[in-house]
Design a protein around this nucleic acid. Structure first.
Lengths: 187, 187
DNA sequence: AAAATAACTAAACGAACGTTTAGATATAAT
DNA sequence: ATTATATCTAAACGTTCGTTTAGTTATTTT
């Protein structure tokens, strides 16, 4: 055997995640990652293979971070009110630390929308599809709406959530909250 | 005197604009621009100074392109219905040629949100502010709503438009149209 | 026809990118 | 204490980036 790692992989991934979250994949360089993660390139490559591998781990880390919110949402039983609360919880998470960086999944979805990276694209699509299924599930609670209406509303909410995450990068928390309130007026 | 340019600057800027529109600023390389514009680097640099200058001209070109829609919107007199029509006109423009690339201004706004480029950022902000003022103006037509409600609705519409443009990169035209319909139920 | 010059081609620039590698360092097992 | 080996540092790798430059081509003026 030989010496031990001087860093914890989960800890440095979280730091990388924050950098990707703030700047996106392409704009974040290995040099920036070295500095932010506090370890050098060799260590990054030996732990994560390459930049792409590190990004995938960062996405995992992000999903684990938001899974608390998602689980709360899954387990809720009040229908539309739960969806609204989920929107608020998401915005809260995105504004933590006064960093305006939206949702990493949505940012990634947008950045990779014209890319050839099928792995990333499929991960993003499956995340969105899961969310849509949850919206449908919640919309059905205590509701007499027909299937078509529910589908239409789920689509609406998914796009609203997408737009919200995009807007969260550039708008104030007050504007965001007004937006959520208006969104749910007629659902 | 000497020989004439073999290209038209307005024509090659439009080609550059489409490339920036599809891929964003950073992802679009000079090599790609050479190919798309059909002229070589020397010509690009002698006509536009550098990549940044070419991008600014591309933004101008885009604004000129959407100014038709914007002028129609400005001159309309029916209030909320005009805003809705403006949303539809914008989506139509964004889907022309079956290219899914959203709105160049919004894409740029998002890409440069964490950048240091004040020139670009200010241009984006002024574009958005103008739009917001137009929304307020149209919301006031045939309306008894108080100022606070109008401001809130204008904010809502601005974020909805922002989200719409972001979503237009990744969603189907049908989903987008459903979204617009749902958006204006709330106004 | 000759001279002048703007527009072209194509090669090269330095810098930064993601990635790899050679060598020094530290620690676990013998 | 010595050996083995995983982890570290730091320099270098080949590409690609945006940009510049030297040299050729074509057109207008004299």
């Amino acid at each position: 055997m030989a010496r031990k790692k001087e860093y914890n992989e989960d800890q440095v991934v979280e730091k990388a995640m924050h950098l990707f979250w703030k700047n996106g994949y392409e704009t974040t360089s290995m040099q920036m990652l070295e500095k932010e993660m506090g370890i050098n390139k060799f260590s990054i490559y030996s732990s994560f293979g390459n930049k792409h591998g590190l990004f995938l781990e960062s996405l995992k880390c992000y999903k684990a971070k938001v899974s608390v919110i998602l689980e709360k949402f899954k387990n809720a039983t009040n229908g539309v009110a739960d969806i609204k609360q989920f929107f608020y919880d998401s915005v809260d998470a995105n504004y933590k630390g006064h960093d305006q960086k939206g949702c990493l999944v949505t940012n990634t979805y947008n950045e990779f929308s014209e890319s050839e990276d099928q792995l990333i694209k499929e991960e993003m699509i499956s995340f969105m599809d899961n969310l849509k299924e949850l919206f449908i599930e919640k919309l059905k609670i205590n509701s007499t709406k027909d299937e078509a209406t529910i589908l239409k509303q789920a689509n609406y909410l998914l796009l609203a959530k997408h737009g919200l995450a995009a807007a969260a990068r550039v708008n104030s928390q007050k504007e965001i909250e007004d937006y959520i309130e208006m969104t749910f007026v007629n659902i």
